[in-house]
């Protein structure tokens, strides 16, 4: 018996807003794996194998911010506080914020079905992320 294809090519499906956001979620996830990989490699290049435990490297890789190195045995924090790492952290944070706000809206949509409720969910989530992003960038650069 021939197996019926479960997928529909993009050319037949068309690029609706839902398809775009589906793709956005996957692409931002891939970008974040890239940032985590850069964080892990960078930590080892800066000598983390001698000064940090596995979980501390993980915490750094999940957000390469100097605050995440403070409690470790790293003797000199300045390599971890470079412009490069602040830029990586900022890009990671922006990507995570975009991925996250969409994810939260998708979850809440499953529990609030009325159009008015969904409108308010979008409004409050977008407002919250618009407030959190500048604060987060400030914390990364001046924290």
């Amino acid at each position: 018996m021939q197996t019926k294809a479960r997928t529909l090519p993009l050319s037949k499906r068309g690029m609706s807003f839902e398809t775009f956001m589906w793709l956005f979620t996957r692409l931002t996830a891939l970008a974040m794996y890239g940032f985590i990989f850069i964080g892990i490699v960078g930590a080892f290049v800066m000598g983390a194998q001698n000064d940090m435990s596995f979980v501390e490297v993980l915490r750094w890789a999940l957000m390469p911010n100097t605050g995440h190195v403070t409690y470790t045995n790293v003797p000199e924090i300045s390599p971890y506080a470079s412009m490069f790492w602040k830029s990586v952290a900022s890009l990671f944070f922006l990507t995570a914020a975009g991925h996250g706000v969409h994810g939260v809206v998708v979850i809440l949509d499953d529990y609030f079905a009325k159009p008015s409720q969904r409108k308010w969910i979008r409004f409050w989530n977008i407002l919250l992320v618009a407030i959190i992003i500048p604060i987060g960038i400030y914390v990364i650069w001046f924290g």
Partner: peptide, 23 residues
Amino acid sequence: HRIGGAMMAIFVTTHVLATFTEM
């Protein structure tokens, strides 16, 4: 996956605000 995502959303929001207020 949803529980983990929701946990992270709450954590990141409160952690950013907490670090800012700490500053």
